[in-house]
Amino acid sequence: MNQGSKKTIKTLCFAVLGMFTFSFALVPLYNVFCEVTGLNGKIELRATNDKNIEIDNGRDVSIQFVSHNNEEMPWAFRPSEDNIQIKTGKYHTATFYVKNTTNKRMVAQAIPSVAPSNAAAHLKKLECFCFEQQELAPGEEALLPVRLIFDDELPSSINSVVLSYTIFDVTDYNDVEFSQHHNDDHHAGHEMEPSI
C-alpha cells in the first residue's frame, strides 16, 4: 500500500470519529439552538440573569396556563388561575397547585413548553418549580410558584401565550442535575452523568 492510501485512510478514520462525536455534539447544539429560537417551545430550565429586563410601559399580554400529567402520574396538578393578564417587562408570580394523591413518597419533574414557539425566547423566569424536582410525601400538597417576565422584544403579533407544564413521575428515575433532594435510596445504581 502506498503513502497516499495510508494518508487517505487516516483522514477518513478521523472523519468517522469526528462525525460520531458530532452526533453527540448535536445535543448541546440543539439545546442552544432551541433556546435561542424557541424551537419546540422550549424555555431555559434555569433562572434568567438579565438585569435590564424590567421596563415600565410594557404592553398587555395574556397567559393561558395549561397542565398535563404524563402517563402513570396520579398527582393532582393544576394552575391556580387559568388565565392571567400581565404587562411585558413586569415580573409576575403565578402558582400551580399540586398534591400527591398516592400513599407513596414520590418525586416529580415539571417540563415547561410555550406556544406559540417564537414567544419562548422572550419568556424569562426568575424562579420556577420546573428548575428542580419536586418531592412530596403521601397526601402532601403545595402551591408551586413561577416568577416570570416577558421581555419587550416579544413580537407584536403575539398577544396571547400558552404556558404548559407537564409533570412526569421521576421517582425511580432521578436525574442528578435537577435534583435538589439528595435522597440516598433514590440514587442507588445511577452512576451515569446526566446528559443534558
Binding site: 470519529l17 460520531f20 430550565l45 412526569f168 428515575y173 436525574d175 435537577f178 446526566p194 446528559s195 443534558i196
Partner: peptide
C-alpha cells in the same frame, strides 16, 4: 453512518444507563 451510530448509542444509553437524551422528563427532547 457515524451519526446513525451516535443516535442508536444515545438510545441505548437512555434505555439502559439512565440518561435522558430523548426523554422530556430528564430534560431531553
Amino acid at each position: 453512518m457515524p451519526v446513525l451510530a451516535g443516535a442508536v448509542t444515545m438510545m441505548l444509553m437512555d434505555i439502559h444507563f439512565g440518561t435522558s437524551f430523548f426523554n422530556a422528563a430528564g430534560g431531553g427532547d
